[in-house]
Protein backbone atom coordinates (compact mmCIF):
# COMPACT_ATOMS: atom_id res chain seq x y z
CA UNK A 1 0.00 0.00 0.00
CA UNK A 2 1.33 3.42 -0.97
CA UNK A 3 2.48 5.49 1.97
CA UNK A 4 0.81 8.83 2.48
CA UNK A 5 3.34 11.45 3.36
CA UNK A 6 3.49 12.23 7.06
CA UNK A 7 2.02 15.62 7.74
CA UNK A 8 -0.42 17.33 9.96
CA UNK A 9 -2.90 18.25 7.26
CA UNK A 10 -4.46 15.97 4.76
CA UNK A 11 -5.06 16.83 1.15
CA UNK A 12 -8.01 15.62 -0.80
CA UNK A 13 -5.84 13.06 -2.53
CA UNK A 14 -4.59 11.74 0.83
CA UNK A 15 -8.15 11.26 1.90
CA UNK A 16 -8.95 9.59 -1.38
CA UNK A 17 -6.14 7.18 -0.63
CA UNK A 18 -7.66 6.58 2.81
CA UNK A 19 -11.00 5.95 1.15
CA UNK A 20 -9.47 3.42 -1.17
CA UNK A 21 -7.81 1.61 1.71
CA UNK A 22 -10.93 1.55 3.85
CA UNK A 23 -12.91 0.19 0.94
CA UNK A 24 -10.24 -2.41 0.32
CA UNK A 25 -10.50 -3.57 3.94
CA UNK A 26 -14.30 -3.63 3.69
CA UNK A 27 -14.30 -5.67 0.48
CA UNK A 28 -11.62 -7.95 1.87
CA UNK A 29 -13.68 -8.72 4.94
CA UNK A 30 -16.88 -9.17 2.95
CA UNK A 31 -15.00 -11.69 0.85
CA UNK A 32 -13.79 -13.41 4.00
CA UNK A 33 -17.38 -13.68 5.22
CA UNK A 34 -18.46 -15.07 1.87
CA UNK A 35 -15.67 -17.65 1.71
CA UNK A 36 -16.24 -18.67 5.33
CA UNK A 37 -19.92 -19.23 4.65
CA UNK A 38 -18.99 -21.22 1.55
CA UNK A 39 -17.03 -23.51 3.87
CA UNK A 40 -13.63 -22.61 2.46
CA UNK A 41 -12.16 -20.95 5.51
CA UNK A 42 -11.47 -22.85 8.71
CA UNK A 43 -11.43 -21.44 12.19
CA UNK A 44 -13.07 -18.65 14.08
CA UNK A 45 -13.33 -15.27 12.36
CA UNK A 46 -14.23 -11.79 13.52
CA UNK A 47 -14.56 -8.97 11.02
CA UNK A 48 -14.36 -5.26 11.80
CA UNK A 49 -16.91 -3.96 9.31
CA UNK A 50 -17.75 -0.44 10.50
CA UNK A 51 -14.39 0.08 12.21
CA UNK A 52 -12.22 0.61 9.11
CA UNK A 53 -11.58 4.28 9.83
CA UNK A 54 -9.84 3.36 13.09
CA UNK A 55 -7.46 0.90 11.48
CA UNK A 56 -6.63 3.22 8.59
CA UNK A 57 -6.57 6.47 10.56
CA UNK A 58 -4.24 5.06 13.20
CA UNK A 59 -1.92 3.06 10.97
CA UNK A 60 -1.56 5.85 8.41
CA UNK A 61 -0.29 8.10 11.16
CA UNK A 62 2.46 5.66 12.11
CA UNK A 63 5.96 5.89 10.74
CA UNK A 64 8.44 3.19 9.82
CA UNK A 65 9.55 1.44 13.00
CA UNK A 66 6.36 1.97 14.97
CA UNK A 67 4.68 -1.25 15.98
CA UNK A 68 1.18 -2.46 16.73
CA UNK A 69 -0.39 -5.24 18.74
CA UNK A 70 -3.85 -6.26 17.62
CA UNK A 71 -6.85 -8.24 18.79
CA UNK A 72 -9.15 -11.03 17.70
CA UNK A 73 -10.62 -8.50 15.21
CA UNK A 74 -7.37 -8.01 13.38
CA UNK A 75 -7.79 -8.06 9.60
CA UNK A 76 -8.16 -4.29 9.22
CA UNK A 77 -5.25 -3.44 11.51
CA UNK A 78 -3.07 -5.95 9.72
CA UNK A 79 -3.84 -4.68 6.22
CA UNK A 80 -3.50 -1.08 7.31
CA UNK A 81 -0.09 -1.84 8.83
CA UNK A 82 1.09 -3.02 5.46
CA UNK A 83 0.60 -6.77 5.26
CA UNK A 84 -0.53 -7.46 1.71
CA UNK A 85 -4.02 -8.81 1.02
CA UNK A 86 -2.36 -11.84 -0.54
CA UNK A 87 -0.40 -12.69 2.60
CA UNK A 88 -3.38 -12.12 4.83
CA UNK A 89 -5.78 -14.15 2.72
CA UNK A 90 -3.21 -16.94 2.45
CA UNK A 91 -3.05 -17.02 6.24
CA UNK A 92 -6.81 -17.34 6.50
CA UNK A 93 -6.59 -20.29 4.12
CA UNK A 94 -3.89 -21.84 6.32
CA UNK A 95 -1.11 -21.61 3.73
CA UNK A 96 2.64 -21.35 4.16
CA UNK A 97 2.57 -18.07 2.20
CA UNK A 98 0.36 -16.56 4.91
CA UNK A 99 1.63 -13.80 7.17
CA UNK A 100 1.87 -16.33 10.04
CA UNK A 101 2.77 -19.19 7.67
CA UNK A 102 -0.41 -21.09 8.51
CA UNK A 103 0.43 -21.40 12.20
CA UNK A 104 -1.63 -18.48 13.42
CA UNK A 105 -4.97 -17.98 11.67
CA UNK A 106 -7.33 -15.03 11.83
CA UNK A 107 -6.84 -14.33 15.53
CA UNK A 108 -3.05 -14.69 15.44
CA UNK A 109 -1.83 -12.52 12.58
CA UNK A 110 1.83 -11.58 12.80
CA UNK A 111 4.02 -9.55 10.48
CA UNK A 112 7.11 -8.74 12.45
CA UNK A 113 8.94 -7.14 9.55
CA UNK A 114 6.14 -4.67 9.07
CA UNK A 115 5.74 -3.96 12.76
CA UNK A 116 2.78 -6.14 13.69
CA UNK A 117 3.87 -8.00 16.81
CA UNK A 118 0.75 -10.09 16.86
CA UNK A 119 -2.98 -10.24 16.96
CA UNK A 120 -4.24 -11.83 20.14
CA UNK A 121 -7.14 -14.16 20.84
CA UNK A 122 -6.93 -13.48 24.55
CA UNK A 123 -8.71 -10.24 25.31
CA UNK A 124 -6.16 -7.77 26.69
CA UNK A 125 -3.34 -10.19 25.93
CA UNK A 126 -1.31 -7.76 23.85
CA UNK A 127 -1.25 -4.71 26.08
CA UNK A 128 1.59 -5.60 28.45
CA UNK A 129 3.87 -6.51 25.54
CA UNK A 130 3.33 -3.06 24.05
CA UNK A 131 4.48 -1.57 27.33
CA UNK A 132 7.61 -3.69 27.16
CA UNK A 133 8.22 -2.85 23.53
CA UNK A 134 7.84 0.84 24.28
CA UNK A 135 10.18 0.47 27.25
CA UNK A 136 12.77 -0.98 24.88
CA UNK A 137 12.37 1.98 22.55
CA UNK A 138 12.88 4.29 25.49
CA UNK A 139 15.91 2.44 26.87
CA UNK A 140 17.56 2.38 23.48
CA UNK A 141 16.55 5.93 22.61
CA UNK A 142 14.75 4.79 19.48
CA UNK A 143 12.22 7.34 18.23
CA UNK A 144 9.58 4.64 17.96
CA UNK A 145 6.13 4.13 19.43
CA UNK A 146 4.20 1.01 20.36
CA UNK A 147 0.49 1.01 19.70
CA UNK A 148 -2.01 -1.37 21.28
CA UNK A 149 -5.46 -1.89 19.81
CA UNK A 150 -8.20 -3.28 22.04
CA UNK A 151 -11.94 -3.02 22.57
CA UNK A 152 -14.21 -1.55 25.23
CA UNK A 153 -14.69 -5.02 26.70
CA UNK A 154 -10.95 -5.35 27.16
CA UNK A 155 -10.89 -2.43 29.59
CA UNK A 156 -12.40 -4.78 32.18
CA UNK A 157 -9.53 -7.19 32.29
CA UNK A 158 -6.58 -6.97 34.62
CA UNK A 159 -3.90 -6.69 31.96
CA UNK A 160 -5.48 -3.47 30.74
CA UNK A 161 -5.24 -1.82 34.13
CA UNK A 162 -1.83 -3.18 34.95
CA UNK A 163 -0.44 -2.21 31.56
CA UNK A 164 -1.81 1.34 31.68
CA UNK A 165 -0.46 1.89 35.13
CA UNK A 166 2.96 0.58 34.21
CA UNK A 167 3.11 2.54 30.98
CA UNK A 168 2.30 5.76 32.76
CA UNK A 169 4.59 4.98 35.67
CA UNK A 170 7.52 4.34 33.37
CA UNK A 171 6.53 7.05 30.88
CA UNK A 172 7.01 4.80 27.89
CA UNK A 173 6.22 5.83 24.30
CA UNK A 174 2.99 3.91 23.85
CA UNK A 175 -0.44 4.74 22.48
CA UNK A 176 -3.45 2.79 23.67
CA UNK A 177 -6.20 2.73 21.07
CA UNK A 178 -9.48 1.70 22.63
CA UNK A 179 -11.98 0.88 19.90
CA UNK A 180 -15.18 1.41 21.80
CA UNK A 181 -17.82 -0.24 19.67
CA UNK A 182 -20.16 -0.48 22.68
CA UNK A 183 -20.32 -4.25 22.69
CA UNK A 184 -18.27 -7.07 24.11
CA UNK A 185 -19.74 -10.01 22.21
CA UNK A 186 -23.39 -9.95 23.35
CA UNK A 187 -22.80 -7.70 26.33
CA UNK A 188 -23.61 -4.00 25.85
CA UNK A 189 -21.14 -1.62 27.45
CA UNK A 190 -23.68 -0.37 29.99
CA UNK A 191 -23.81 -3.93 31.25
CA UNK A 192 -20.06 -4.42 31.51
CA UNK A 193 -18.88 -1.08 32.87
CA UNK A 194 -20.53 1.32 35.25
CA UNK A 195 -19.18 4.48 33.63
CA UNK A 196 -20.06 6.09 30.33
CA UNK A 197 -16.81 7.82 29.58
CA UNK A 198 -14.25 5.10 29.02
CA UNK A 199 -11.38 7.61 28.96
CA UNK A 200 -11.82 8.04 32.73
CA UNK A 201 -10.08 4.71 33.07
CA UNK A 202 -6.88 6.16 31.65
CA UNK A 203 -7.28 9.39 33.56
CA UNK A 204 -7.36 7.31 36.73
CA UNK A 205 -3.76 6.34 36.01
CA UNK A 206 -2.78 9.91 35.27
CA UNK A 207 -2.57 9.22 31.56
CA UNK A 208 -3.37 11.73 28.87
CA UNK A 209 -6.67 10.68 27.30
CA UNK A 210 -8.27 11.94 24.12
CA UNK A 211 -11.74 11.26 22.74
CA UNK A 212 -11.97 10.55 19.06
CA UNK A 213 -14.76 10.07 16.53
CA UNK A 214 -13.83 6.71 15.11
CA UNK A 215 -16.13 6.98 12.11
CA UNK A 216 -14.19 9.98 10.84
CA UNK A 217 -10.89 8.78 9.46
CA UNK A 218 -9.44 12.26 9.32
CA UNK A 219 -10.18 12.80 13.00
CA UNK A 220 -8.62 9.46 13.87
CA UNK A 221 -5.55 10.26 11.83
CA UNK A 222 -5.06 13.67 13.39
CA UNK A 223 -5.63 12.52 16.95
CA UNK A 224 -3.21 9.66 16.43
CA UNK A 225 -0.57 11.96 15.01
CA UNK A 226 -0.79 14.18 18.04
CA UNK A 227 -0.69 11.19 20.36
CA UNK A 228 2.35 9.81 18.58
CA UNK A 229 4.13 13.13 18.79
CA UNK A 230 3.43 13.26 22.51
CA UNK A 231 4.66 9.74 23.09
CA UNK A 232 7.63 9.99 20.76
CA UNK A 233 8.60 13.26 22.37
CA UNK A 234 9.07 11.57 25.70
CA UNK A 235 5.98 13.02 27.29
CA UNK A 236 4.47 9.65 28.13
CA UNK A 237 1.77 7.38 26.82
CA UNK A 238 -1.59 8.46 25.45
CA UNK A 239 -4.99 6.80 25.58
CA UNK A 240 -7.29 7.27 22.60
CA UNK A 241 -10.93 6.65 23.42
CA UNK A 242 -12.21 5.97 19.95
CA UNK A 243 -15.95 5.87 19.51
CA UNK A 244 -16.87 3.40 16.80
CA UNK A 245 -19.48 0.88 15.68
CA UNK A 246 -19.46 -2.77 14.79
CA UNK A 247 -21.97 -3.02 11.94
CA UNK A 248 -21.98 -6.83 11.90
CA UNK A 249 -22.03 -9.73 14.33
CA UNK A 250 -19.32 -10.38 16.89
CA UNK A 251 -18.07 -13.29 14.80
CA UNK A 252 -18.99 -14.50 11.34
CA UNK A 253 -22.22 -16.42 11.78
CA UNK A 254 -23.31 -14.58 14.94
CA UNK A 255 -27.15 -14.47 14.88
CA UNK A 256 -26.99 -11.37 17.11
CA UNK A 257 -29.93 -12.38 19.28
CA UNK A 258 -28.83 -9.70 21.71
CA UNK A 259 -29.56 -6.67 19.55
CA UNK A 260 -32.63 -5.68 17.60
CA UNK A 261 -32.70 -5.64 13.83
CA UNK A 262 -33.92 -2.09 13.98
CA UNK A 263 -31.02 -0.90 16.09
CA UNK A 264 -28.60 -2.62 13.78
CA UNK A 265 -30.18 -1.15 10.66
CA UNK A 266 -30.18 2.34 12.12
CA UNK A 267 -26.54 2.06 13.05
CA UNK A 268 -25.68 0.72 9.64
CA UNK A 269 -27.52 3.57 7.97
CA UNK A 270 -25.92 6.31 10.02
CA UNK A 271 -22.49 5.08 11.10
CA UNK A 272 -20.76 3.73 8.03
CA UNK A 273 -17.31 5.38 7.98
CA UNK A 274 -16.85 4.69 4.30
CA UNK A 275 -20.13 6.38 3.49
CA UNK A 276 -19.11 9.34 5.65
CA UNK A 277 -15.86 9.77 3.80
CA UNK A 278 -17.51 9.38 0.42
CA UNK A 279 -19.87 12.23 1.27
CA UNK A 280 -17.07 14.39 2.61
CA UNK A 281 -15.01 13.85 -0.51
CA UNK A 282 -18.07 14.32 -2.72
CA UNK A 283 -17.07 11.31 -4.73
CA UNK A 284 -19.33 10.64 -7.70
CA UNK A 285 -20.89 7.28 -8.31
CA UNK A 286 -18.46 6.67 -11.15
CA UNK A 287 -15.46 7.53 -9.05
CA UNK A 288 -16.54 5.19 -6.29
CA UNK A 289 -17.24 2.49 -8.81
CA UNK A 290 -13.79 2.80 -10.27
CA UNK A 291 -12.10 2.55 -6.88
CA UNK A 292 -14.38 -0.29 -5.94
CA UNK A 293 -13.53 -2.22 -9.08
CA UNK A 294 -9.87 -1.75 -8.40
CA UNK A 295 -10.02 -3.00 -4.80
CA UNK A 296 -12.33 -5.87 -5.69
CA UNK A 297 -9.75 -7.03 -8.18
CA UNK A 298 -7.10 -6.97 -5.48
CA UNK A 299 -9.35 -8.95 -3.16
CA UNK A 300 -10.26 -11.49 -5.83
CA UNK A 301 -6.61 -11.88 -6.68
CA UNK A 302 -5.83 -12.51 -3.02
CA UNK A 303 -8.30 -15.39 -2.97
CA UNK A 304 -6.68 -16.84 -6.08
CA UNK A 305 -3.26 -16.40 -4.51
CA UNK A 306 -4.38 -18.06 -1.30
CA UNK A 307 -6.05 -21.01 -2.99
CA UNK A 308 -2.94 -21.63 -5.04
CA UNK A 309 -0.80 -21.41 -1.93
CA UNK A 310 1.12 -24.25 -0.36
CA UNK A 311 -0.43 -26.36 2.38
CA UNK A 312 1.93 -26.98 5.26
CA UNK A 313 2.96 -30.57 5.73
CA UNK A 314 1.29 -32.13 8.76
CA UNK A 315 4.60 -32.61 10.51
CA UNK A 316 5.44 -28.93 10.06
CA UNK A 317 3.28 -28.57 13.16
CA UNK A 318 6.27 -29.62 15.23
CA UNK A 319 8.49 -26.83 13.91
CA UNK A 320 8.73 -23.41 15.51
CA UNK A 321 7.90 -24.67 18.99
CA UNK A 322 11.34 -23.52 20.10
CA UNK A 323 13.91 -21.18 18.59
Amino acid sequence: MAKVEQKGTLSKSDLREFFREMLLIRRFEEKVEERFRAGELPGFLHVAIGQEAVAVGVCRALVEGDIIASTHRAHGHTLAKGTTPNELMAELYGKLEGCSHGYGGSMHLYDIERGNIGANAVVGGGLPAIVGAALTFKLRCYPRVGVAFFGDGATNIGTFHEALNLAQLWQVPAVFVCENNHWAESTPSWQHMPIEDISQRAVAYGMKAVKVDGQDVEAVYKATRRALEHARGGKGPVFLAVNTYRLVGHYIGDPQVYRSKQELEETRATQDPIEHLRTKLELSGDEVEEIDREVQEIVDASVEFAKNGTDPKPEDALKNVYA
Binding site: G102, Y103, D311, L318
Partner: peptide
Protein backbone atom coordinates in the same frame (compact mmCIF):
# COMPACT_ATOMS: atom_id res chain seq x y z
CA UNK B 1 2.02 -34.08 20.10
CA UNK B 2 4.31 -31.60 21.79
CA UNK B 3 3.36 -28.33 20.14
CA UNK B 4 0.86 -25.55 20.66
CA UNK B 5 -2.25 -26.02 18.53
CA UNK B 6 -1.53 -24.91 14.99
CA UNK B 7 -4.11 -23.13 12.86
CA UNK B 8 -3.93 -24.89 9.50
CA UNK B 9 -6.30 -27.87 9.63
CA UNK B 10 -3.75 -30.33 8.23
CA UNK B 11 -1.40 -29.50 11.06
CA UNK B 12 -4.07 -29.40 13.75
Amino acid sequence: KFSPLPFAPVME
